[in-house]
């Protein structure tokens, strides 16, 4: 790739942030979703309501939290409620417009696995599990997913259905009585994907700058479908990039070098 002045990861976070609006009530997963949600809040969506599952509603942290329950989330929140209230009144009650999730493993229909690699009873790798995701995936009005592409992460068949996306595709959600939209957007480090209107298979609708179709296919475990009218993702603006980099720098300083970028499988 020629020198674009930003990393694929930065492009991913910024593209994801653009999908969020000022009026959204967003249930934030830790890791990549958390960065995108806070960049949105610090740029074009200052009044967005960010909710973390620890019970903090309308939080506005100055640095990215290392866990979903960092003290600053509470200090800056409009309200902090108990965990049962969070899941009953706010999520189950239908007050969340967007659930923003990361994924360890995803399939073409936006079904997510963060539970096990291998068999459930005798797993090859025991992952942390679903946390809030199973109900976030069905109770939020729609779901955005963000993750870096890899053949291990984007697979033909996930090992475990931690949270339900579009199942086998088509009207599978409806058949299970789930009336929320489910995954409507997948933002990776290479592209923006949206589900096909009928089959619900994630389809590449926009390529990030410098990315080819081959690059998307090489890092994806299923045969990728591309939209007929494939768009170019607008490159990050100077302001978006500066906001993200400042946020990361503040975060690194606050956590004294602790990792904040690898928590995408947090519940």
């Amino acid at each position: 790739m020629s020198e674009p002045g930003f990393t694929p990861n930065e492009m991913m976070t910024i593209a994801a942030s653009r999908a969020l609006g000022n009026d959204d009530v967003c249930f934030v997963g830790i890791g990549a979703p958390s960065a995108a949600c806070n960049v949105a809040r610090l740029t074009h969506a200052p009044d967005i309501t960010l909710i973390y599952e620890s019970g903090t509603i309308g939080t506005a942290p100055s640095v990215l939290p290392l866990s979903i329950g960092d003290g600053e989330l509470c200090d800056t929140a409009t309200a902090t409620v108990s965990v049962p209230e969070m899941f009953r009144y706010w999520l189950q009650g239908g007050r969340v417009s967007i659930g923003f999730l990361g994924a360890a493993q995803i399939d073409r229909f936006g079904n997510i696995n963060t539970t096990v690699i291998g068999d459930y009873v005798h797993p090859r790798t025991r992952l942390p599990g679903g946390g809030g995701a199973p109900e976030i995936a069905t109770s939020s009005q729609e779901i955005f997913i963000t993750m870096a592409q890899s053949k291990r992460g984007m697979v033909e068949k996930i090992d475990f259905f931690t949270s339900f996306g579009h199942g086998e595709g088509g009207d599978h959600r409806h058949r299970l009585g789930i009336e929320t939209k489910g995954p409507t957007l997948l933002i990776t480090d290479l592209a923006i994907w949206k589900p096909d209107a009928v089959t619900k298979e994630f389809t590449v609708v926009s390529l990030h700058a410098g990315v080819t179709r081959e690059m998307v296919q090489e890092t994806c475990g299923w045969k990728v479908k591309f939209a007929v009218a494939l768009e170019d993702t607008p490159v990050p603006t100077a302001m978006e990039l500066q906001t993200l980099r400042d946020l990361k720098a503040r975060t690194d300083a606050a956590h004294k070098g602790a990792s904040t970028s690898k928590g995408s499988i947090d519940g």
Partner: peptide, 21 residues
């Protein structure tokens, strides 16, 4: 009995994994 078995912000729980795996 649990719903999320991770080291928050870090990764996996290795003693739990050793027991389960």
């Amino acid at each position: 009995v649990f719903s999320y078995a991770g080291n928050p912000g870090v990764g996996l729980l290795r003693r739990l994994r050793d027991a389960v795996e």
